[in-house]
């Protein structure tokens, strides 16, 4: 299933990435060459096989719900490109 230029543009939008004219072409070509190698997977019979999403069978680790020190607002905001009081500031989202 070869990727079309339109699909690459759609995936770029989903990924919040942007590509110039020549880049889109080059990307479509490169991604298709990579996807070609994926077709080998069709040879693997997985009809009776469950998925491995995690190699070590472990359950969630839970701790008691006790209050303990955490980041202060200033620490949490120290890396913000822009802040306003105790908030991260971004361009207007709602008109």
């Amino acid at each position: 299933m070869a990727l079309t230029r339109e699909e690459v543009e759609h995936v770029a939008l989903l990924s919040r990435l942007e590509f110039g004219e020549g880049e889109i072409e080059r990307f479509t070509e490169q991604l298709n060459s990579i996807l070609e190698h994926f077709t080998a997977l069709q040879e693997a019979d997985t009809s009776q096989i469950s998925a491995t999403t995690h190699v070590v069978p472990m359950l969630n680790v839970l701790r008691d719900d006790e209050a303990r020190p955490s980041c202060t607002p200033d620490e949490a905001l120290q890396n913000a490109p822009e802040r306003s009081d105790d908030f991260f500031k971004v361009p207007r989202v709602v008109e």
Partner: peptide, 20 residues
């Protein structure tokens, strides 16, 4: 992405089991 998840991600995770 929608429509390709089973063919790629799910399939890959199943083959991962075979390798394990």
């Amino acid at each position: 992405s929608s429509g390709y998840y089973d063919a790629y991600y799910l399939k890959a995770s199943q083959v991962r089991t075979l390798i394990r």
